[in-house]
Design a protein around this nucleic acid. Structure first.
Length: 496
RNA sequence: GUCCCCUUCGUCUAGUGGUUAGGACACCGCCCUUUCACGGCGGCAACACGGGUUCGAACCCCGUAGGGGACGCCA
């Protein structure tokens, strides 16, 4: 490992899905690694044997892959610092514990949960502060220790933390942070079951994996001084730390399920595309600066990303802006990519092109969908709404907006106009040849003039008859994409 | 309760001693138009408060208030 090579990591615990907070942490690490041409490591923190599940791990990996955040070392990839799951690194932690024992920086703690609970209660009752542990076993007489050991009493290992002084570091995001040592208690380093705690495993892994920058959520700030004490106890040089601000809900409370979607897969299911998710997440807590387009691809983000521009204040998640970024990506995407997104959505519904429709320029599903998406243009702003926007191009039993129908079609005038329009088209357009938008428009305008109507008085009823909706893309283009047989058929049907 | 952090339009943010405090989302209006979008143009809207420092503070210092986070043999 070269000295100045950046090595960063994302270290989720497999106890749930990949939520936006985790996704953003992963993203920032990934962006930094890619920007610096460093290495991005994925490490699985599964030291909690109760809560870790294979299903969660799958979900997290799926989420990362969906976002396009590829890792250089980790599960499925291997690497020189493996294994990359903490549950498989027990020997590494054991060696580190031995080192701490040799240096007399840890001690055994025999306190049971009940005892701890009792002393905490007592402290509270007497109005004394209780900040996690009272150092009881630190002062245990040797004879007592021997007795407990002989009895086989379960014990964990606690770090002997310095009682006075200060521990500080220069945080990449907020600058100097310092803690008085007396507020840091002798936390557990190895549990009674022999597994390391999070704080211990993180330090050992970050060190043995050569991590140079630890970029994580702000909720880890208070763990940092304790971790620095572990580095110190082991005689290791700590990495640089950067704590990213939290992501808040619209109510400025920590973002959670009750705010709406929080897992990246939920966003995917709601029609958000990964490029947009990545783009939006990057904008949350980081800024491109005064100039520059906010809408960026991952490549653009990598080029622009800088830790210096990461904000120190928590940011509220804005679903509206995500939608906007999403629509921008969809709109700017090249036609092939747009079609690739649309095709599976249509296929899932069994909607496919039929040559009998006589649509000019369309010969199969691909060419037809290309036509439809071109016609939709900027209206194609979400994957979720796409089926509603296209249903009437594929089915005759498309939904009809009742209010629009009542206003435009239901009355005698509406029906008469539609009947007249149907006949005019039937007469003017050759039955065996596809008609273009201009041809439809000519018929409509001619009839309008002949009947002394405004063109709109034909157009609006036709739109409802043809699409079921009061609004749509340009109606003549819609007619062209529907094809003559269906246009005439639907007009007649609506005319009753 | 203890410790730590944060504070520019409703939201995301630019800004690091002298700016008409800029952009984006949302919202409103106008234009475009067969409707709806898109797009274009314009508008509304912010330096939490109080003291300092300074010729001059959004920017520096100190308080206050508000918000967030952490206090596990969870991670």
């Amino acid at each position: 490992m070269s000295e100045n090579l950046v090595r960063v990591r994302f270290a989720p615990s497999p106890t749930g899905y990949l939520h936006v907070g985790g996704a953003r942490t992963a993203l920032f690490n990934w962006l930094y690694a890619r920007n610096q041409q460093g290495v991005f490591v994925l490490r699985i923190e599964d030291t909690d044997r109760e809560r870790s599940t294979a299903a969660s791990l799958d979900a997290i990996i799926r989420g990362l892959e969906w976002l396009g955040l590829d890792w250089d070392e980790g599960p499925g990839k291997g690497g020189p610092c493996g294994p990359y799951a903490q549950s498989e690194r027990l020997p590494v932690y054991r060696a580190a514990l031995r080192e701490l024992q040799d240096r007399d920086r840890v001690y055994r703690c025999f306190c049971s949960d009940e005892e701890l609970e009792r002393r905490m209660q007592a402290a509270k009752d007497e109005g004394r502060a209780w900040d996690g542990y009272d150092g009881h076993c630190r002062r245990l007489p040797a004879a007592q220790i021997a007795a407990y050991e002989a009895a086989g009493r379960p014990a964990c290992w606690r770090l002997r933390t310095p009682p006075t002084g200060v521990t500080f570091w220069y945080d990449i995001v907020v600058g100097k942070r310092e803690f008085q040592n007396e507020v840091i208690t002798d936390r557990v380093v190895v549990k009674a079951d022999g597994f390391p705690t999070y704080n211990f495993a993180v330090v050992v892994d970050d060190h043995t994996m050569g991590i140079t920058h630890v970029l994580r959520g702000d909720d880890h700030v208070s763990n940092t001084p304790f971790q620095l004490m572990i580095y110190d106890a082991l005689g290791w040089t700590p990495p640089k730390f950067g704590h990213m601000p939290m992501i808040l809900g619209p109510d400025r409370k920590r973002l959670s399920k009750r705010h709406g979607a929080v897992s990246v897969e939920e966003f995917r299911d709601q029609g958000i595309i990964p490029q947009a998710m990545v783009n939006y997440l990057a904008l949350l807590g980081w800024s491109i600066g005064a100039s520059g387009d906010e809408v960026m691809t991952s490549e653009g983000l990598i080029k622009k990303f800088s830790l210096k521009k990461v904000n120190s204040s928590p940011a509220a998640f804005d679903y509206d802006k995500l939608e906007h970024i999403n629509s921008q990506h969809l709109k700017r995407m090249d036609p092939d990519h747009r079609r690739a997104l649309a095709l599976p959505i249509l296929a899932a519904r069994g909607w496919s092109y039929d040559p009998a429709w006589q649509v000019p320029g369309a010969s199969d599903q691909h060419t037809y969908v290309d036509r439809l998406l071109a016609l939709l243009g900027g209206r194609f702003s979400s994957l979720r709404t796409l089926p509603d926007q296209l249903v009437f191009f594929f089915r005759e039993d498309f939904p009809v907006d009742a209010e629009a129908w009542r206003q435009q079609v239901a009355g005698a005038a509406g029906r008469e106009r539609l009947a007249a329009l149907a006949e005019a088209m039937d007469r003017a357009l050759p039955a065996d040849r596809p008609a273009g938008a201009a041809a439809y428009e000519e018929v409509v305008r001619e009839l309008a003039e002949r009947s002394q109507l405004a063109a709109g008085e034909l157009i609006h009823p036709a739109r409802v008859a043809l699409t079921g909706q009061g609004r749509s893309a340009g109606i003549f283009e819609v007619m062209e994409a529907l094809g003559r047989p269906r246009v005439v058929g639907r007009l007649r049907r609506a005319a009753g």
